[in-house]
Design a protein around this nucleic acid. Sequence first.
DNA 1: TCAATTTGGTATCTTTAAGCTACCATAAAT
DNA 2: ATTTATGGTAGCTTAAAGATACCAAATTGA
Lengths: 167, 167
Amino acid sequence: MTRTSLKEFNCSLAQAAEVIGDKWTLLILREAFFGTTSFSEFRKNLGVAKTVLSDRLQSLVDHGVLERAPTRPGVDRYTYRLTAAGRDFFPTLITLMQWSDKWVFGPGSEPFCVMDKETMSPVQQVGVQARDGHFLTPRETTFGPGPGANEETREALVSLKPGNRAL
Amino acid sequence: MTRTSLKEFNCSLAQAAEVIGDKWTLLILREAFFGTTSFSEFRKNLGVAKTVLSDRLQSLVDHGVLERAPTRPGVDRYTYRLTAAGRDFFPTLITLMQWSDKWVFGPGSEPFCVMDKETMSPVQQVGVQARDGHFLTPRETTFGPGPGANEETREALVSLKPGNRAL
DNA sequence: TCAATTTGGTATCTTTAAGCTACCATAAAT
DNA sequence: ATTTATGGTAGCTTAAAGATACCAAATTGA
């Protein structure tokens, strides 16, 4: 009855879910982007239980999203910092924020504003773009096997015939 | 000791986390985008426990991401379909997939490929763009209060001085 | 300089959620 | 007429969430 792990899924989304598919993890990441680096700062800003914070930080370090380093050599104070892989979650977080801004808070009630530092104008709505740059709706896209698709993935894909897309 | 709810957080990310901050929910959403609409199909494709599936589908319906409708009138067979809000998670899911493609599977081992249906060429890497369309790294962005920022949010923002961004 | 506080945890315990098995009524297929 | 699929609910066991207590080292304040 062990909790099912998604590690064996031949699916990128499942792997991402394994890394950040958890409420506190998402908020810890947000804090990291805000510049939080120490255990106590995370705790103060999020109000999360120490045990849970400890667990999630460890998991993020294990997954290569954060790195833990002594704040000063020889002293057991630690600094958690985003790795390159961690910084690459930036579009994900922004997209999630924009979703809530639109569907939870609604236009005119957004708590935060993310801006281009240079011009101080808000960033664009994030979207999926075709090669020529125009934005695509889900209906205008389709899925195919990638180079790393295994037999199972291929089978799953043939069963979703074009007409099967219920979007 | 009730599990802390994020509903009261004046933060878009927290609200999004409340809706999809769960592994199975993310995979259910993926399936919905693949065109899955029935309880048994979700179950077959994901291998998730019925109780958990039932719970997550209900939550997604409650949050307005999916809608449940009788498959045929008067018969208790149901069809789960993405709402407009649900379809708006498309960029989020694609961004997550692209993250794993890069950091978990690596180039050349991607299980799936998302394509523009018209040209059958892969979609672009999703990113955060400035008004003029150029892509922004986290370091090139900054946060400010939005129109819906409350006092707590404003206070949290002043404490993150420019130099405080540890990116 | 000595006490108080902060930091970054771990250990233990209780409550809550995950997920397995069994069951059930209706509907469709054979 | 019997079997199989659908869309669940109930009940149970295990695992995770989160509160509390504790601790040693470092830092601050009087």
